[in-house]
């Protein structure tokens, strides 16, 4: 096994220190932006396990994000005395069930039909959100006041910026680490086999339908967790969370960051969040600019930002060795 070099260790330690100290360093608005970027980082990493690792192009990831987001709000609003963690647990359970049901139907198709159907199912969930007014609030959305989280050491209040930041950092940071480890597990290896050659996999004794279903449900639950935090951060959830736009968002983040590296989507999530923040102050048509960036990337830089970074590093290396 590779041991961490001192420089890497210093880098990771430094980054952790900055992340821990962020609430002391950043103004309220900036802290909120970082929190949101971390939420989207998990959303995008879960998406990239499908797109980059398994080669499955889904246009329906927002159905999980949205179900997680709505389930959290609905549970907290309707079940009196429910604790924060139980509400999240219920939300994850709901996304799990949704993943199993939709996944079961989608098992039968691959390639383009898979992509098409994920979009269709996303549209179905959006329609349910619109029509099921009594539960989802329809176009008005749902407000909520999240209960405080009582820990042995003290109390965390989700409506307080630094508190929700730390909660997000710990739980979603943990989830991101779990994803990173996932890529090295037996299941993680099998996901790569799925991308490379599903037919050969079957002749080696893998029931690839099971592989795909597990992956679909797993990434769905992670997206649901991200959605749950999105609700908590905003103390509000609207149909935006389950819309096609939310699917487009995760696709853009993941692709802009780069699908070939684990941290690509994390980079993409931060890039997108900050660029959006900057552009939306200048123009209401920022999505158009985002879309243009995306198309240019698809045409000229299919490796995304992390791919561009790698190219640049390789070029620098060549230039220095040539000297």
């Amino acid at each position: 096994m590779k041991t961490l070099r001192p420089r890497t260790l210093a880098l990771v330690g430094g980054a952790l220190l900055v992340l821990l100290a962020a609430p002391k360093l950043l103004p309220v608005y900036q802290l909120r932006l970082v929190t949101e970027a971390i939420i989207f980082a998990l959303y995008a990493v879960s998406y990239n396990l499908l797109l980059g690792y398994a080669g499955l192009l889904s246009f329906g990831h927002a159905m999980f994000f949205g179900v997680g987001a709505f389930a959290t709000a609905v549970a907290l609003n309707h079940i009196a005395g429910l604790s924060l963690l139980s509400a999240m647990g219920l939300a994850l359970l709901t996304t799990l069930l949704v993943g199993l049901t939709v996944g079961f139907l989608l098992l039968r198709v691959k390639g383009t039909p898979f992509s098409l159907l994920t979009l269709a199912f996303n549209a179905l969930f959006l329609a349910i959100g619109v029509k099921w007014h009594t539960v989802t609030g329809g176009d008005d959305g749902l407000s909520l006041s999240a209960p405080k989280l009582h820990l042995g050491l003290g109390v965390l209040d989700p409506s307080n910026g630094p508190d929700i930041y730390y909660l997000t950092l710990v739980i979603l940071g943990g989830a991101l680490l779990f994803c990173w480890r996932f890529t090295r597990t037996a299941m993680g290896h099998s996901v790569l086999l799925l991308r490379e050659n599903e037919e050969r996999m079957r002749f080696l004794g893998y029931n690839t339908n099971v592989t795909r279903l597990i992956l679909f449900v797993f990434t769905g639950v992670l997206a649901g967790l991200a959605g749950s935090f999105y609700t908590l951060l905003n103390a509000f959830v609207s149909l935006d969370a389950v819309s096609i736009d939310m699917t487009t968002k995760v696709l853009l983040m993941t692709y802009l960051g780069g699908t070939a590296a684990f941290l690509g989507p994390v980079l993409g999530a931060f890039f997108y969040t900050y660029v959006q923040d900057y552009l939306s102050n200048l123009t209401d048509n920022w999505p158009l600019i985002m879309g243009l960036i995306f198309i240019v990337m698809v045409l000229f830089a299919p490796g995304g930002l992390s791919g561009l970074g790698k190219d640049l590093a390789a070029r620098l290396k060549r230039a220095t060795t040539a000297d």
Partner: peptide, 10 residues
């Protein structure tokens, strides 16, 4: 697929 999806978005 990504290209056509991006076009639709634009």
């Amino acid at each position: 697929l990504l290209l056509t999806f991006g076009l639709a978005y634009i």
